[in-house]
Amino acid sequence: MFDFLTNPGAMRTANVWFAALCTLGLYSILYRENRFFRFFEHLFIGLATGYAVYTTWNDTLRPRWWDPMVAEGRWWWAFALPAGLLFYLIYSRKYSWMSRLIFAVFFGFAAGQAFQGFAAYYFPLVRSAINVPLVPAAGAAAAPGAYALTPMAGVLNNLLFLFIVISVMTYFFFSFEQKGPVAGVARMGRYLLMFAFGAIFGSTVMARMSLLIGRTDFLINDWIRQTVFRLPG
């Protein structure tokens, strides 16, 4: 009865139908929230959680805890179990404070790692911010397609760079009232931020459209043409 489950052709058809229904089910929220969407929403959450259970055991607990403890004889990994169970003491009125002990470890780790994180990430950024020479480079020539005020173009861009960095950082001062020229610079910083955010918005739109094109292509070609009407690919 279940032989079709080993048939590649049959399974492909089943997968495509299932995927198509899932797609249409979630798209239905664009009209309004409905029972069709709710069905696939709950299915999505169930599948995601079940998959998390499977991968948590398969990719984390078994290779990093169970196998070292049982197969390799590193018995001290047994301490990880009661430590991990401390999370669950949140549900005990008497012992809930003990769950803070495990969180204290995580908070401490996160805080301690902040120093290395700051240096590793921000030092190169500071270098890139400093690397803006304010005189023309020796031997600079007008490059085709460049902003042909070169060699001054580089200097103008660098001055603009510094101005933007300073004005945006000025916007983020909180501990004093921004008045006079400082307020003007801060306001400029906010407008420049909007400019930058607009650029991010614009550069992301195409990427999102391509995802929609991909999904629509699946529905039209994989599902309707090849699976429903069995037209050649």
Partner: peptide, 29 residues
């Protein structure tokens, strides 16, 4: 805010020093 001020000063000073041929602050980081 004080730290941000120091950082701005480092960046401006670093850029000026680099402009006049001294990468002290550039190499510092």
């Amino acid at each position: 805010d004080i730290v941000k001020g120091i950082l701005i000063a480092c960046i401006v000073l670093g850029a000026l020093l680099l402009t006049f041929g001294s990468p002290v602050l550039y190499n510092f980081f």
